[in-house]
Design a protein around this nucleic acid. Structure first.
Lengths: 366, 366
DNA sequence: ATAAATTTGTGCGTATGTATC
DNA sequence: GGATACATACGCACAAATTTA
């Protein structure tokens, strides 16, 4: 391993990686001396200052410790993790959604027996609040983070915080969404497949005019919409702009009602509607009923998430199952492993295959 | 303040102390720029390297943060000035209920702007888990606690923990329930009045056979039941044991379905049913519908909480409004005041007067 | 016991790069 | 573009701690 002066990464950064690597690969073991500063200077042909900067960082991050007059040593994992706070941060888009409590419950289940507590942060759809919470969690020295990113379909203004987490060696797991640039750990559902399954089901029932409502700044939502388009293509059904409605407002101010009204104003209104989540689906349900149409007789309706709401509604809702609790557990387990391995493991990624839960809100077309 | 080259302390160390001092004495306030590196070089007649070493240390220790191209700033590390942890614990009976997220949201709203973070604990209906969380929160030196006690209608096995909190001077606010013995701060709704209002409404509609379902180990629930009895008495309607059903299982395993079936097996079945919360009410709804009865035509139904579920159900549910978010805010505000007054204030108690939200699930008796 | 060698710690000077305003 | 601020990098010198010849 050498240091490349042309690399965009600073030399001290490269050296840090080299040293960390040799620790990760157990080339140097805990409490074993690493090469002296002057040796490193000669080996890598860099200045002593640069070497000191790299080592200083690693000491601060808990990888090494120095003994004046003796040398620099590899810290053992115990002392590397002894600064643990046993706090796990969970930053969520909205705490008041029906998904959040299940996720928390799942995380709590795996994390509490190991002595960790959960600190919650409510981004409330606001990237700035998300940033504030991220900084706060960093300041609090959380052992790890589980994040459901806000406005995930847009370029995140908070990437620098995620990179900061990486630099600081604080492991994190994203939930529901992920940022391509980061190559981080995440757990999510295959939303494209979910959207596909929902749409396919409606197509199989003979529907050809299928409306769709999605939230354009929400990554899972846009993927569900992609799945919708994919299914139409597969079934050679024309894609029609007028059947597609999207919005960006926070869910609690969503314009579903007027979107639905627009959908039924067009010449050939839809015979079925796919909503990107159950909350929206049930509001659609309300509006459709108010328009004097019956579900499933006149209009078929598919939601997403399989929330409690779906079962409790008058006509139980056909919906795509979202393994909320299991995702929480999975995210918790991933994070624990990352924490306990000293964040040295490869990023872990898990994608749940969604299934359609067929209830009574859809009917073959007349 | 100057730097003494003769001092046994290294110069960068002296500079660190100077900077820390100016932060401690609020000469520079959080997020305010400190002097640039070059200014410090001139002022203290030391090299840039030395300045960078001092600042680098303080950044690592959380006193400062740097912004390339802009300057170096005082961090608002919260716990620096006081022994405070700026953590508020929230222990809830079930995190996965529909009440919890609203409460959290309310608490977060008032508490986050003041720099506090929320640690959640999920008792999951289990007093032992509650105890574990209480002990954990004490160990973590939380600045205050908000607790929704488990099995609140029974003598609490965890009183000793609450007394420990008092001894340690850790303020806490109970939510929804309270323990008489403690004379603690709490915020709740007048559940007796709520139960009374619900029952009175049904009585005014002419109902005389009013069934009731409640959870006998849950204080608010038993109070709602008391309100039910009070209303019957006021209207001189005989109280009938066979119309009263109760259970103790966790809500997610509740036996509502069979309880409802029992209620409609008796000779003179009820014409109306009051359920102690909306979740139960909606399950009752399902079962009643399955029995071939129509709501509100054959049976009137009243819930409690005014949850999202209540609006979304087929026949919007008449229910007693529970100010979830406002209660969270109130509890947060109370706790902040207790914390900031050094827990010297009298215990504060706030009781919300509930109101009946009349929707479509009730009808005058035929 | 001492001196020499090694290793980290402190400190200075200088140069160039990059981000921001 | 220019000024300013922090970031990276090199080289040198000496001090303090420790080991070893």
């Amino acid at each position: 391993m050498k240091i490349d002066p042309q690399s965009p990464l600073p030399k001290y950064h490269q050296l840090k990686e080299i040293i960390k690597d040799s620790i990760k690969k157990s080339i140097v073991k805990p409490n074993e001396r690493i090469r002296s500063e002057n040796e490193l200077v000669k080996i890598y042909k860099i200045s002593r200052h640069t070497v000191r900067q790299a080592i200083g960082d690693l000491v601060n991050e808990g990888w090494l410790y120095r003994e004046p007059g003796i040398g620099t040593f590899c810290a053992d994992r115990l002392s590397r993790t002894s600064g643990k706070t046993f706090i796990i941060g969970v930053i969520s888009v909205v705490v008041s959604s029906y998904i959040f409590p299940r996720i928390i419950h799942g995380i709590d289940n795996v994390v509490h027996p190991k002595g960790y507590s959960i600190v919650v942060g409510n981004a409330n759809h606001n990237p700035e609040k998300e940033a504030a919470h991220l900084q706060d969690m960093i300041n609090r020295n959380v052992d790890g983070l589980i994040i459901e990113p806000t406005k995930s379909a847009l370029p995140s203004p908070n990437i620098k915080y995620f990179q900061k987490l990486k630099e600081k060696g604080i492991p994190f797991v994203m939930i529901d969404s992920y940022l391509d640039e980061l190559n981080s750990s995440y757990v999510c559902v295959d939303d494209v497949l979910g959207g596909y399954l929902a749409t396919e089901y409606l197509l199989e029932l003979g529907h050809r005019r299928i409306g769709v409502i999605y939230k354009s700044d929400h990554l899972p939502s846009t993927k569900r919409f992609q799945g919708y388009k994919k299914a139409l293509k597969k079934y050679k059904v024309d894609y029609s702009e007028e059947l597609v409605k999207s919005f960006t407002l926070p869910e609690d101010k969503n314009p579903t009602s007027s979107l639905i009204k627009e959908l039924f104003k067009i010449k050939k209104p839809p015979t079925a509607i796919f909503c990107y989540n159950d909350q929206i689906a049930l509001q659609a349900y309300k509006t459709i009923t108010k328009l004097g149409l019956k579900i499933p007789h006149d209009v078929s309706l598919v939601g997403f998430d399989d929330s409690d709401l779906a079962i409790l509604s008058e006509i139980p809702l056909t919906t795509v199952a979202h393994p909320k609790g299991r995702m929480g557990k999975k995210a918790g387990k991933m994070l624990l492993q990352l924490i306990e391995s000293g964040n040295t493991s490869r990023p872990q990624q898990f994608v749940y295959k969604p299934r359609l839960t067929i209830r009574d809100s859809c009917k073959p077309i007349r």
